[in-house]
Amino acid sequence: MTTPHRPTATGSRARVLGRVRAALADVPPAERPDEVLVARDYLDVHDTGGPGELTDLLHENLTEYRAHVHRTTRARLPETIAELLAVRGSGSVVTPPGLPPEWLSGTGIVRVPDDPTGTPLTAARLDAADSTLTGCAVAIAETGTLVLDAGTGQGRRALTLVPDHHVCVVRAPEQVVASLPLALPRLDPSRPLTWISGPSATSDIELERVEGVHGPRTLEVVLVTGS
């Protein structure tokens, strides 16, 4: 997109940068940014433990933030997904491109596939769907966080936002990292990322936590372990 030339814009750029430089007159001109000390003496990981313990920690922290967590194996995954959609009473499920078809092989539920390059689902269509099923890019045990990077099996950001019920499949242990410092190098900032720690919530009324405002009010996480 081209923006029409704004006569004031370039003037303000020079003006603001000029003021910033003038304000920093005390900084020696030869000083380089990396010469200003940043001591990264903090820990990479707080809870050390084996891969099994990490999955337990993720489970525990997700539950504490009111996500519903289900443990299953790869073989039983379709059954688990079918079961939780049935218990929820969902009539339709939004599916992103690249979602493994076997994940929904245990249920006859109406699929609402998103086709971003052809006809993407409108916000209204997403609003009318009951559930969304996706994978994730990485999960962080210490904070109980799922990160979605709009990649294969995750889809556009809107898919996990508008429907009221989000089912997210996490492959453990390979997608689970212990901490934030270990998660960041695995993520590509050029992709749009959504970090999810429990369902939508607010504490705006007397600082009392209420789950479920605008995002999905129910977050179900399926931890897939073993073969």
Binding site: I140, S200, G215
Partner: peptide
């Protein structure tokens, strides 16, 4: 909170 419910990053 250990982490807030939603963080969005975009480039």
């Amino acid at each position: 909170e250990r982490m807030n419910p939603y963080t969005s990053t975009w480039t």
